[in-house]
Every structure is written in C-alpha cells, then in structure tokens.
C-alpha cells in the first residue's frame, strides 16, 4: 500500500534534483585583470564573464558606474571569446568625487542579453588635486544609458558562490530533515518516559540512526561547499564546531544503547539521554552560532534567507527540496524501524 505522501515525496525529489541541477545560472562578471587605474590614462581591462555568449556581431557596451548617476562608457569593447571581453576606457583627468580614489562598478550590456555587473570592480585614483565639478561634467557627458536585466528562468549569479549556490537545495534540507527526525525522536522519548510506552524505543533508535546519517551527509556537503567558498574544508567556524559536537552527542547514544543489556533499563536510560542531548543541541545549533562571529549564512550577521540570497526562482526549488527531504528521511526511518521490529520478532 502506497500512501499519498510517498508519491508526493518522489515527485518533489525528482523535480528538485532535475530543476536544481539543470536550471542554469544567470550571466555574471567573474573577474577583471586590473585592480587600479589612474585618472587621465587609458585603461585596458580584460573582463572574464560567466555564461557569456558574446560575439563581435552584436555591439557590446561597457560602463564604469559611480554613485548611481555617473557613467563612463568604454570607447571600444571587443569579444575575445564567448566568455572574455577586452574593454578600453579613457579615464578623464578628474573624477566626480573629492576623494583621492573611487571604486566604480563595472557594467557590461548587450541588447539581447541585458546588463550584468561587478560591484566595486576596481579603484580609480586621482592626485590630491581634486576637481569634483569638472569630474562631474566629464563623467556624465553621455548621460545615463538604458540598461535592463533579461528575464529568463535562471538562478541568480553571486560572486564567489557561483555554482556552489546549488548546495542550498541539498545541504540545508538535510539539516532540516535531521532536525525533524531528532525532534520526533525526542518527542517519542518523552512519551516513553511519561506514558511508559516502551514499544516506542525502536522508533527512537531508527529516527536517531537516520538523523545521524543525514547530519553526517549535511556536514560533508557543508565541508565541500566551504572548501569552494571559504577556502578550507574545515575552518573551525563556530557553526561547524557546534554541529560536529551535536553529531558526537548523538553518536554516543548508540554506544549507550549497546552498553546496557537489560531491556527496560536500556529503554529508560537511552530515552533520558536522548532528551538530554536534544535539550543541549538547541542552544548549540541555534543560539550560540547566531551570537558569535561566524562565516555561515544566517549567523554572525550574515544573511541567509533574505532577498539577497534566496530569490523567487530559488524558492521554487528550495521549499520543495525541504519538504521532499523531510518526507524521504521520515520514510527511510519508518522502513528502518520496521526492519528492527521484524528482526526482533524472528
């Protein structure tokens, strides 16, 4: 007998894995080869683009944009390849600012693909002799170009993250599913202790086993992600540390389970330990990392599910992924519970 939620689970997971891996990323500027240019010089910049489709057949525009209203157009932009552009800027003698250096953004635009940007792309330096009024006149000469962002089905492009963005659909739902299983097992333990429903203990064991596996997978996917974005598999970030501690706690549960032979005694002791672990886990995972300096999204003042990180296209995959992984993990735990029960009856 197949229950309806199992069908939902399969459909959601198939959808999540196809959509999450196939939908492309938007175009974006990966990097440029210059860090600084001086006022008054000719600045040749080689621009590397992600997912570009540039050719010389269509005119390409590039701009340096400063302070929302000042645009400096490139005098010549040519496509070296689909993903590489060569742009030449004639930087005027004065900059539209009284500061010695400004950090303009770089914009690249074509009529068919729309505009992409690299914020604070490089620094432009002028001497200590600044003329803001002259600079303003020189920079806004050509007026504000008309730019648009092309609308198509794609995940947002984020600097540094790039393709690792997709990790969100797998890593985060795994932790959510683990929390669900540990939550259910804590509830079952509570019922065991209060109502003396001894038969629930196999369920607790199954939930914890599957939850621990999900937690391990979560920490491994997190490490792979961290390797690509933070630079190291393990950087002793507070979130990494506390989640590893939580996994150690739950791993110890199984040793306790194996260490008590008397059935009644075992059920009581493991349930009490399980509840104790759960109550220690909540502050470790959700309180302490939020307060301390952490690189992890959602902690230490970093954004997580705000508009900046999760746009509407990603929500279309992320929410189904959370539900799908929760259902799948519950399903696996349920099957494992039945296996344990059967092997006990034999």
């Amino acid at each position: 007998m197949i229950k309806w939620w199992k069908v939902v689970c399969i459909i959601l997971l198939v959808y999540v894995h196809i959509a999450g891996l196939i939908v492309p990323l938007r175009q974006g500027v990966l990097s440029i080869d210059k860090l600084r240019c001086d006022a008054g010089e000719v600045c040749d910049i080689s621009i590397k683009v992600y997912h570009g489709s540039y050719t010389d057949d269509e005119p390409i525009h590039a701009y340096l944009k400063f302070d929302t209203s000042y645009y400096l157009a490139a005098s010549r932009v040519s496509a070296v390849s689909h993903n590489e552009l060569q742009a030449r800027f004639h930087i005027p003698d004065y900059l539209p600012s009284s500061a010695e250096a400004i950090y303009p953004s770089l914009l690249v635009s074509t009529d068919s693909d729309g505009a992409i940007t690299l914020p604070r792309a490089l620094s432009l330096a002028q001497g200590s002799e600044t003329r803001q009024d002259l600079g303003a006149a020189l920079w806004s000469k050509e007026g504000r170009p008309t730019l648009y962002a092309k609308e198509y089905l794609a995940f947002p492009y984020r600097n540094i993250l790039v393709e690792t963005l997709r990790c969100l659909y797998y890593h985060v739902p795994m932790w959510f599913a683990m929390m669900l299983l540990f939550g259910i097992s804590a509830w079952q333990s509570l019922m065991i202790l209060i109502k003396k429903d001894w038969h629930r203990s196999d369920r607790v064991y199954a939930m914890n086993a599957v939850g621990l596996v999900l937690g391990l997978l979560g920490i491994i996917t997190g490490m792979v992600w961290a390797h690509n974005t933070w630079g190291k598999f393990w950087s002793w970030d507070i979130k990494q540390t506390t989640s590893a501690i939580c996994l150690f706690m739950y791993a110890a549960y199984f040793f306790l389970y194996a260490g008590v032979r008397d059935e009644m005694q075992r059920v009581r002791l493991t349930s009490a330990y399980n509840l104790f672990c759960f109550s220690m886990m909540i502050p470790l995972l959700f309180l302490i990392p939020r307060m301390m300096d952490s690189l992890h999204p959602g902690n230490g003042g970093n954004p997580a599910f705000a508009q900046d990180d999760l746009d509407n296209t990603m929500r279309l995959v992320f929410y189904p992924a959370v539900i799908g992984y929760m259902l799948l993990s519950y399903w696996i735990a349920d099957l494992y519970h039945r296996v344990i029960k059967l092997s006990r009856e034999e």
Binding site: F255, G259, I288
Partner: peptide, 20 residues
C-alpha cells in the same frame, strides 16, 4: 553507573556533552 560497563559508557557519553 546503571549500565553494564559503567566506566566505558559514562566516559563515552560524557565527553561529547562536555565539549561545549
């Protein structure tokens, strides 16, 4: 202390809990 091997069990379950 209520398990079958108190020394092993209590040390293995207490170490992760005192890590924080």
């Amino acid at each position: 202390s209520l398990s079958d091997s108190p020394a092993v069990v209590s040390s293995i379950i207490s170490l992760p809990l005192i890590l924080p």
